[in-house]
Nucleic acid binder design. Structure first.
Length: 223
DNA sequence: TCATTAAATTGTT
DNA sequence: AACAATTTAATGA
């Protein structure tokens, strides 16, 4: 992995020593995952910590009746799977590419080594876990308190969390059906919500993509 | 490069 | 949920 690649733009890389960065570049593998392909599957023994370099992934599960639930969309700059690295258990979810995506695979041994040797890496992980916990708590609150349009607004804003996903472009390539999965809505309802948000100039929707026009506005919508 | 066709996505009932 | 309309991507002249 060459120097100054997209990889080096990640916040946790900046805090490492040059030697640590070298080892990460040496050990990490970047794979092109085509749309619809799995990055990892539920039940596997997790061997890697994953990062999204480009594209978009979803963390998802399918119930026995075939209903799909998406827990989280992961845009470029996002890293996930630290829970599986810290605990010894099978991966509890599927990860699928929503678009052709470049995905980084950091081996468990390297992850553990960083954990043992880099204070700043630990700080990054603690912050990330804290951010995610806050998001999931908020998600449960919204689920109970907010109307449907507001849920969609929150979910979109959440995909642009500047701490978890820094330096992202404001255009999200995602179908309205996937927005529905992400929000726990039907495609039709997601479509209506997106139109409503477009009406008030918070987003712009076009074929297969959504542009964020007003992130603070999205966060506060319906409150 | 342009026209035709297929596939994906969106709109409507 | 099913169907129609629209947009994009792929194919071949």
């Amino acid at each position: 992995m060459p120097e100054n690649s997209l990889l080096d733009k990640n916040a946790w890389m900046l805090g490492l020593t040059p030697e640590q960065r070298d080892r990460v570049r040496r050990d990490i593998v970047i794979k092109l995952v085509r749309q619809g392909e799995y990055v990892c599957r539920k039940g596997e023994a997790p061997a890697f910590w994953h990062g999204v370099i480009s594209g978009l992934l979803k963390i998802t599960n399918v119930s026995m009746s075939g209903k799909e639930v998406t827990f989280l969309g992961v845009p470029p700059g996002g890293w996930f799977g630290e829970g599986s690295m810290l605990k010894e258990h099978p991966r509890p979810y599927d990860v699928v590419a929503l678009r052709d995506s470049e995905v980084a695979y950091l081996p468990r041994a390297t992850f553990t080594w960083l954990l043992d040797n880099s204070i700043s890496f630990n700080r990054f992980l603690v912050n990330q876990l804290n951010e995610r916990l806050g998001q999931f708590i908020a998600a449960i609150e919204y689920e109970r308190l907010l109307d449907t349009d507001a849920k969609v607004a929150k979910t979109l804003a959440w995909m642009f969390n500047p701490y978890l996903y820094p330096g992202q472009s404001s255009i999200l390539a995602i179908s309205q059906e996937e927005v529905g999965h992400l929000c726990g809505l039907s495609r039709q309802r997601a479509n209506m919500a997106l139109k409503a948000l477009e009406q008030v100039n918070l987003i712009r929707v076009s074929y297969g993509e959504i542009e964020i026009l007003d992130l603070p506005g999205l966060k506060n919508f319906g409150l």
